[in-house]
Write a protein that binds this DNA or RNA. Structure first.
Lengths: 259, 259
DNA sequence: ACCTGAACACCGTTCAAGT
DNA sequence: ACCTGAACACCGTTCAAGT
């Protein structure tokens, strides 16, 4: 008996993408309506709604109106399914996913393109806060993630930097966006869970620790959120921080000899 | 009866640090030798050894030669304990923690100091890979984390940039280091778990996906690890990427008007 | 080929009870 | 004040069995 998701392909396999290349994406003609794509799509919806900690194979099965173990016909482990979900949302980074008609995705010079990619990746991390921990713990070599990194490499090719410098430049920009989007996405999630606005949450947290003076002094600055000059709301400040940081990065890349 | 870890202080409390400020750090005179500090220290050791996924209150209690529920006298929840562990390892960022005698930690200009802080933070993330997901999901306002961010702010003050620009500069550097250290720490962890060197793991992964040409072409570059010019090992390449990215960031900060 | 039910070895946490 | 044991409501996953 050959299981559709065959776990004997490699021992200690590093990723779903390195195994069972046969017949897993077939048409959905099962009585239950089960399917790798459908399972993945529902998993994404559940992850968005409940978060990574709230996601379980049993909850997922219930959502699919199926027994917990049915899912295991299509995926070997929970981790494999998470990898599938992780790559699936990277499809949102494809140019066609968000650009309107007549919006060229390239050809305006690397600065514009790089900004666009950074903005899109940040949005992905904020839309799906569970993406960040999974990116940190899987290899993330699914087809859609790979397509994104190829586009990124193409854009950076326009700087004229040699390959070594290009790798460093890519790293500086995208590790930054990853870090930024991670913290931002989680903060937003926390506020939503507590049922308050970001400003309320922030003010509340600041107020609570006001008794410890040195904490109050540093806390906001540490998270990059302290409204030092009043007026602005948390979102505005964060927007300015992000824009400024991108300016820093682009100026830095120029200083390394980009044309 | 007032529990030592009193959970009634606030509902939906955002952090351990915003509650039970009374008598929790007392001397260890319990028969079992239990203690918040000792619990935290053993938790850190267990997290280092088994990873975040392998850590459980029951495993921890066993390590402490105590029943699972004893720990709950000292901490409210597993999350609270994780916050304590998270802040504890931030103590390794203190100047005294790693600098030898006669090694001034400041006063050589912000470029040198900023590099030192980035290097130390990266090392922390690599030494304790569980720090990254926790930083992403907690507020991280413990005293040691706060002390670190104050030092960072002080160093950036030397650039002469106004406060808004300073915030963006801090963000660009430390979100980058966070992203970089996260991926690096996890990759190292994976290799160790598989019992192979980083180069072996990398070569194996590349070989496995060689059948899918476009994957093989992009994969390494995406993770920032592909040895494009032979010769170098994975560690060397990563070291160069990190150094280059820091150069980019510092040049970018200078371009924004830092003195 | 696909799906189920019972079972195993775990979790975090509550609660009443011991000393 | 501190610690325990039993219990509750969960997990991921295996395995033998159904159709």
């Amino acid at each position: 008996m050959v299981r559709q998701a065959d776990r004997s392909a490699r021992t200690a396999r590093a990723s779903v993408w390195l195994a069972d290349r046969t017949g897993k994406g077939r048409r959905n003609d099962q009585p239950s309506g089960l399917d790798r794509d459908r399972i993945t799509a529902v998993a994404v919806r559940l992850l968005d709604a409940e978060g990574l900690a709230g996601f379980s194979m049993r909850r997922l099965a219930a959502e699919l109106n199926v027994t917990a173990m049915s899912v295991y016909w299509y995926v070997d482990t929970k981790d494999d399914l998470l990898e599938l979900a992780l790559d699936a949302v990277h499809g949102e980074l494809e140019p066609s996913a968000h650009a309107g008609p007549g919006t060229p995705s390239a050809g305006q010079g690397w600065r514009t393109d790089l900004r666009a990619l950074a903005v899109a990746y940040r949005a992905l991390l904020v839309r799906h806060p569970w993406v960040s921990p999974l990116t940190g713990s899987f290899l993330n070599i699914g087809p859609r993630a790979v397509a994104f990194s190829r586009r990124l490499r193409e854009v950076m090719g326009e700087t004229g930097l040699e390959s070594h410098a290009r790798r460093g430049a890519i790293s500086s920009v995208f590790q930054f966006v990853y870090g930024f989007g991670t913290i931002e996405g989680h903060f937003i999630q926390r506020c939503a869970a507590a049922g308050v606005t970001q400003d309320e949450y922030f003010r509340d947290a600041l107020g609570s620790i006001g008794e410890q003076p040195e904490l109050a002094e540093t806390f906001g600055e540490a998270a990059g959120l302290l409204p030092a000059d009043g007026g602005d709301c948390v979102e505005d400040l964060r927007e300015r921080d992000f824009a400024f940081a991108l300016d820093v990065l682009i100026a830095g890349i120029e200083a390394q000899g980009a044309r």
